[in-house]
Amino acid sequence: MISGVKRLVGMMLMLTGLLHVIYGLFAYASQLQPIVTEGLWSTVANDQWDRGTAFWYMMFGFLLMLLGYMIDWLIKKKGIAPPAIFGWILLVICLFGAIVMPASGFWLGLPQAWLLLQM
């Protein structure tokens, strides 16, 4: 049986993803605006690094929300812990990200990875 804070890890990942998207909407507004106004289709070309960065920043937030939802669903609906590989991969991603970009939000994922590894 999974209890306590461990049951919140999925919700914490969803919240982290949501904060990522909300922050991205403001931080990358000038890059996202032309993507939307130009009609979305093929609006990020290979030489448009600013738009590509904004796009992938936003997509990472949505992927965190998806991962959090799946973990939450596994724990609450099925009563089973997610596979340990989720915690290990999140740990590696966040450690590498925090090393390469210390002034970033990668630090937020470390406690969540640790909680996943404790299940």
Rank of each mutant, 00 (worst) to 15 (best):
M1I: 06
I2H: 07
I2M: 07
I2G: 05
S3P: 00
G4H: 02
G4N: 11
V5P: 00
V5F: 01
R7I: 01
R7Q: 12
G10L: 06
M11H: 14
M11C: 08
M12F: 14
L13Q: 07
M14S: 10
M14T: 10
L15F: 14
T16A: 15
T16D: 06
T16G: 02
L18C: 06
L19D: 08
H20M: 11
V21T: 09
V21R: 07
G24S: 10
G24M: 03
G24R: 01
F26Q: 09
F26S: 09
A27V: 09
A27Q: 08
A29H: 12
S30A: 13
S30C: 04
S30V: 12
Q31D: 13
L32V: 12
Q33W: 13
Q33C: 07
P34K: 11
I35D: 03
T37Q: 05
T37C: 01
T37S: 12
E38Q: 12
G39M: 06
S42E: 08
T43M: 05
V44C: 13
A45D: 09
D47L: 04
D47N: 09
D47T: 13
D47K: 05
Q48T: 08
Q48E: 14
Q48Y: 02
Q48G: 06
W49T: 12
D50Y: 09
R51F: 08
G52I: 02
G52H: 00
G52W: 00
G52E: 00
A54V: 12
A54G: 11
W56V: 15
W56R: 11
Y57T: 14
M59N: 09
F60H: 12
G61N: 10
F62V: 15
F62A: 15
F62K: 13
L63W: 11
L63S: 10
L64Q: 11
M65G: 14
M65L: 11
M65N: 11
M65P: 12
L66F: 12
L66T: 14
L66H: 05
L67P: 01
G68H: 08
G68C: 12
Y69A: 12
M70T: 12
D72H: 15
W73P: 02
W73T: 14
L74F: 07
K77E: 05
G79C: 02
G79Y: 01
I80T: 14
A81T: 04
A81V: 07
A81Q: 03
P82N: 05
P82I: 10
P83W: 00
A84W: 00
A84E: 00
A84N: 01
I85A: 13
I85H: 02
W88Q: 05
I89Q: 06
L91H: 05
I93V: 15
C94Q: 04
F96P: 01
F96N: 00
F96R: 04
A98V: 06
A98W: 13
I99Q: 03
V100L: 05
M101K: 08
M101I: 00
M101P: 00
P102Y: 04
P102T: 04
A103N: 11
S104T: 10
S104K: 08
F106N: 03
L108T: 13
L108R: 05
G109D: 01
P111G: 09
P111A: 09
A113S: 10
W114H: 08
L115I: 12
L116T: 03
Q118M: 09
Q118D: 07
M119H: 05
